[in-house]
Amino acid sequence: MDTPLREPTFLILTALAGEPLHGYGLIGEVAALSDGRVTLRPGTLYGALDRLVDAGLVEVDREEVVDGRLRRYYRLSPAGDATLGAETERLRRNVEAATARLRARSRTARPLAPRTAGGLA
C-alpha cells in the first residue's frame, strides 16, 4: 500500500487499532475519530477494506448474525499495526517540525510600529 496513507485509510486503520469492528461500527468510529469530517458510506468502506485486506493490513476477525443480518468483524493485522505505527510516527515528526517553526516565528515576529499620532498632517 502506498504511503503516505490517505486520510480515510489512516482513520480506518486507527479505528481498528482499538478492537475488531464490523462495517457499521467502523463507519461510526471513523466519524467520531475525525469529529464528523469523514463520513464513509458502505460502498466506499468495503472498497477500502478490500484494498486493505489485499495489502495484508487488515484481517477478518469473525462473523456473527445479528437480527438476521450478517456482521463481519475486521481487525488490524501485524503488518497493519506496523504501517499505522510508521505513518503515525511520520505525521508526529511533521507536526513537531511545524510546531517548532511556528513557535520560533511567533517569538521573532516584530510588533507593528506604532502609528504616529495625527498621521502626516
Binding site: 464490523h22 462495517g23 457499521y24 458510506r41 458502505p42 460502498g43 468495503y46 443480518r69 450478517l70
Partner: peptide, 22 residues
C-alpha cells in the same frame, strides 16, 4: 448481505428508499 446489512443499520427508521447518495 454484509453491505446491505450495513446500509440497513445506518438507515433511519421509516426510510423506504435509498438516498441518491447511497
Amino acid at each position: 448481505a454484509e453491505i446491505v446489512g450495513t446500509y440497513l443499520d445506518l438507515a433511519v427508521p421509516g426510510r423506504r428508499w435509498p438516498s441518491p447518495g447511497d
